[in-house]
Simulated assay, not measured.
Amino acid sequence: MSSVIHIGQRAIGANHAPFIIAEMSGNHNQSLERALEIVDAAAVAGAHALKLQTYTADTITLNVRNKDFLIDDKKSLWDGSNLHELYQKAYTPWEWHQPIMERAQQHGMVCFSSPFDETAVDFLESLNVPAYKIASFENNHLPLIEKVAKTGKPMIISTGMATISDIEEAVKTARNAGCKDLILLKCTSTYPALPTNTNVLTIPHLKQMFDCQIGLSDHTMGVGVSVAAVAHGATVIEKHFTLNRSDGGVDSAFSLEPDELKSLVVETERAWLSLGQVWYGPTEAEQKSLMFRRSVYFAEDIQAGEVLTAKNLRVVRPGFGLHPRFYQSLLGKRARNNIEKGTPVVWELIE
């Protein structure tokens, strides 16, 4: 496994802050002007990458209305549409890709895409994208994975709905076709997803099973689940992004707004910074605080030869005297000389 993967100029790995991907998806609402505003807002919020989706309704499905192609789910955001209608609303026109990518590059932000068929890979290669993402619904599209792998560029695969054997097959296909830099994203393919069905404990298990970097494609509301994922080793976080959920759009209901994306960038980096290493005892930063620990002090003025008792010895702050573990053994001993109240107890003062 490559310990560090580079997408554009950005390094991704355990020793780097989480790589934050803002997924535009169909939140441009079929307006290039809005799409460019989304790029600008993502950059201001601190996202490291903007991601597109590259397909047309015809490259992803058939325009028929039999029951197989109708969305019949009252809980779905897209209930009543057929798949072709949904993807006509959601797709990003291919002629928009270049201006969107150029705008992202102007901000110093990486821009890449999820191809949904082989023609999309050819198109994205013509734009020299720095990486590819395989969406959860495509993680069983082995010919697509193979074609992407042959580009030699980093590949990110979402694992929504995939069994261990499904993931193993996808990973094997990618690696056998030449993929060296692979990242898997834990994903729950419900929209929105709930924290209770996100199962971030899968992240370290995936890392162990497939010996690659693991991230999270997060469809939950807020940033808490992403922070938890980073705490369990995620190096990449992908979140859908929009200017304002109230503007509507195919993915708006579970997308972050600009202030939330900024919070995601800040809080996931804080979570990463907090990981550190296994450590016990005072850190370097805590050295000055050691004085505030308890130790044994003389609580009264004491004459030479006087017996030490619970009245004239106390365990108090600060911590310059003997450790409290010695308190019981000090009781009944005698002072070696005259001692002033507030003096730390040290062995040299005890007979």
Rank of each mutant, 00 (worst) to 15 (best):
G13D: 10
V278N: 08
H16Q: 14
D181E: 15
A90W: 02
V307T: 15
G233R: 02
T235G: 03
T196F: 09
L349Y: 04
S114E: 10
A162W: 04
D40Y: 03
I167G: 05
I7E: 04
T196Y: 09
S158I: 04
I71P: 01
F326S: 13
L83F: 11
N82F: 07
L243Q: 08
S263P: 00
K51V: 11
W279Y: 14
D117G: 02
N176S: 15
P282Q: 08
Q98M: 11
F137Y: 06
C187M: 03
D122C: 03
F210D: 06
T242R: 00
V266M: 11
Q98F: 02
A234Q: 04
E85S: 11
I7Y: 01
N244H: 03
R336H: 13
K172V: 10
G224K: 11
H28V: 09
S76D: 13
L62S: 08
F241E: 08
M209V: 02
M155A: 10
N29W: 03
S295T: 01
Q208T: 10
P324H: 10
Y297Q: 03
E102N: 15
S25H: 07
W347R: 06
P143T: 05
A335F: 01
H219I: 09
K74S: 03
Q88D: 12
E340T: 15
V121H: 05
Y280V: 15
N244F: 00
L185T: 05
W78F: 00
A35G: 14
E238R: 00
H48R: 12
V230W: 04
Y191R: 02
I12M: 13
R245N: 09
K180P: 00
T59N: 02
E33C: 05
N337H: 14
A43R: 07
G215K: 12
A11M: 05
A253R: 11
H6F: 05
F19W: 11
I134Q: 03
M109K: 03
A131T: 04
P130V: 06
G215R: 12
G160P: 13
A135Q: 02
Q9N: 14
I145H: 11
K207W: 00
R317L: 12
W96G: 03
N337Q: 14
D259W: 02
S246H: 05
L243H: 09
H28A: 09
S289E: 13
A41F: 06
A231K: 12
P18L: 08
S329T: 14
Y297E: 01
L32H: 05
T202F: 13
R34I: 12
H219S: 10
F69I: 01
K186P: 01
L313N: 08
I12S: 05
D73Y: 00
L184Y: 01
T268G: 07
V278F: 13
V200E: 07
A131N: 06
N312W: 04
E118A: 15
H323Q: 12
S165P: 00
D79G: 01
L144F: 08
S263L: 12
P99E: 09
L216F: 07
D58T: 11
K153T: 01
Q277L: 14
F19V: 06
Y91P: 00
H6C: 04
I100H: 07
L144W: 05
G276V: 07
E300K: 15
L77T: 00
Y132T: 02
E348Y: 00
E168R: 12
V236G: 10
V225K: 02
R314W: 09
T309K: 09
P115C: 06
A149R: 05
S2Q: 12
Y297R: 02
E340H: 05
N66I: 05
P93G: 04
A45L: 09
